[in-house]
Amino acid sequence: MVILTPKLTKKALPLAIGACVVLALVVPARWQRDWVGPFGQLATLLVAPVSGPVKRLAHFVAPTPVPASDSFVGQLKQENDELRTQLLAERAEAARLRTLLEQQRVMITQTPGGVTHLPASVIAASSDNTMLTVRAGTRDGLGAGDVATVNFVHLLGKVNAARTRDASVVPITAKNAGDIEGVVIVDGLTMTLKARLSPTGKGTLVGDVEDKRTEDGKAIEPQVGQDVRLLDNAGWPQTAQMLIIGVIEDVRPSPRQPLRKQITVRPQVGDLSRVGEVVMQMPLQRERLASEREDSR
């Protein structure tokens, strides 16, 4: 626009619009992904000086109701949540190992101790709440598949693409996040109900819980307010097991199976797309490599 003469502009504009029409309507996304990605990354980087501070300011003005950790009670609750998560994770790990031992194929590749945490600020969120961009990337040791949490114990989502300086995180409540398996904590740590949860795209997850009965045949039913935690060995790393997905907001008969209950779960931290800061979980080994690379630089 600046350097083109009026004559050139006259020809260039229809050509540019024509090129956009072709790209928009004819060229499949899979052919654009490779070459558009770096430009998108650059654009995000250029806009970050504005979007980052404004996002933080918006978070400051209208904070997500993350459980308070500054007050004494808040700190105790935070510690309690952390210990509870750790204990449940240990129990889940123990149960998993017991099963593995029974099946005589013990293949432990990762332990909960082999993970490190990296705080990262959220610099952008997609308008349809399906993606968050965090200021941490491969140079910090982050990789695709790493887990994002809020306050270490609340599950936020998974990294789907990590670039040099930033990464995209898909929140578990995003409509494209896919199903996750969790357990409803019914009675302390002794009684749980399995549930397969699907995101609704409106900040909640919905799914049927298993039909489980006590010894005297009475059905164990989930209640509003009970915690739901992650227990999905197939889709999530071992270190993410027993992180808090949310609390039960609604219980109703399942439309598919009348004998079962359908639960609606909402994350305790509120709208996951409005979170200002996240804590990334990543393998310790990768973090070491990243810091060594940083030192050598």
Partner: peptide, 29 residues
């Protein structure tokens, strides 16, 4: 020209979710 360039910038900044996969794509145009 302004519309075209602003539109391109928005296209580059918009990541579209891929169905049934925790992945996204950007489409120019």
């Amino acid at each position: 020209w302004t519309a075209l360039l602003l539109g391109l910038a928005v296209d580059l900044l918009t990541a579209l979710p891929i169905a049934n996969a925790a992945s996204d794509t950007r489409i120019v145009g």
